[in-house]
Design a protein around this nucleic acid. Structure first.
Lengths: 220, 220
DNA sequence: GGCAATACCAAACAACTGTTTGTTTTTATT
DNA sequence: AATAAAAACAAACAGTTGTTTGGTATTGCC
């Protein structure tokens, strides 16, 4: 009766779901399953992607998916969590060695956008898939996404801005502009890093005011 | 055999689909059908919304929908087209009597965002639903959406900006920030008009430079 | 008032959906 | 080599999906 996957170990280190007594095998295809799911969810959305699509992508039968995950909802939740984890790690790493507030924000945006536009990354689902689709797990995903956005709130709080500036709206504007890039971005076109750099630059000093004073000094 | 709806009259003035010889009835429920479809597509997305949802919302049986539209794809396409038409009309009207470039852009953004965040408006589907979902009609929808965005390209072209400014990225940033508002906006919170006004203001003069010169004069 | 087109109902169809079940193969551990 | 768990197969199930079909009121029009 210990056949169906348990929901408890959703966020563990990578082992398969069931069993308490033995380590997972080496030919475990759980990772490939997640990769395929992430790709398909990002490309087609959650509803349009079927369990058969995902299983078929790695030459597996539909029913076998349920050895690893108790439901499609849970599979999405796992991919989503991994996506949040990765983009968060990337942003943290990019910011780590910088101290100047604007440089930190710029680096964060570059990492955020770079991760988001990388077709091979789980984080694509953060933008493409709406948490509501995950069913009962939706609330947990929203919390995770907000937790990631909180990094930007902190970075923007550190900026030297006049008291009258609405930092929340500044954040919503910046994150919106970045996330929306997933809609218009095409590989081979714009460089994600340069896009992010431009967006931050525009927020720091609007193009309309470029001629009124000297160009912003290097922040490297 | 003239029972199924024809695809030809998808973009006509509002009459039902079939028949060449007589006008549609007055108790025609095609409009209510479109309204319900628009609402549900905007709320749940295309895939998650079933024909039974839409029909049930107005007390109609599922099969009856196919008297008005030949397919679910076509129903979406019609809603989408109507959404583009409405938001375009609103933006055009808002801009019409203004001449100052920044004021025109601001008015356009306010109209764009106001329409997008109005729960009763078809234009919500422009953001929520991805054209690909419309199947064969996808290309046509992309063209329509691009046609709307072209208004903003024109408005931004009219702005007095230094030659070095990348107007395309400025547009992508602004539209992205506006469209993404549909993700975080909650009725009763921010006022759509004030959000749009802020976003344009930030692009005109960045908050970080507010203390370095006098505040922008009124543009009313 | 008669008539034909309109607009819908009622019921089904075939395909597809997520998921379950019983069984088999494969691997790690003893 | 023996054994038990892990990982998958093979096949089905119950429900839902978009859609079709045949029939029936209702309406506009001469």
């Amino acid at each position: 009766m210990a056949r169906t996957a348990k929901a408890e170990s959703t966020a563990n280190g990578g082992g398969a779901a069931p069993g308490n007594g033995r380590r997972p095998r080496q030919d475990n295809r759980r990772r490939q399953l997640l990769d395929a799911a992430a790709r398909l969810f990002a490309d087609q959305g959650y509803r349009a992607t079927t369990i058969r699509d995902i299983a078929g992508a790695i030459g597996m039968l539909p029913g076998s998916v349920y050895y690893h995950f108790p439901s499609k909802h849970d599979l999405l939740a796992t991919v989503y969590e991994e996506g949040v984890r990765r983009i968060g790690t990337n942003v943290d790493a990019a910011v780590a060695e910088l101290s100047e507030p604007w440089a930190r924000l710029e680096a964060a945006c570059m990492a955020h956008l770079g991760t988001l536009l990388d077709r091979s990354d789980y984080a694509q689902v953060l933008i493409r898939v709406i948490p509501t689709d995950a069913g009962e797990a939706a609330d947990r995903l929203v919390v995770l996404r907000d937790l990631h956005e909180a990094r930007f709130a902190a970075l923007i709080d550190d900026l030297p801005l006049p008291a009258a500036a609405d930092r929340r709206r500044l954040r919503l504007m910046l994150i919106g502009a970045l996330n929306w890039a997933q809609v218009w971005y095409r590989p081979g076109g714009d460089d994600p890093a340069s896009v992010a750099r431009d967006f931050v630059r525009y927020l720091r000093q609007a193009p309309a005011t470029w001629d009124r004073q000297e160009t912003t000094e290097e922040t490297k």
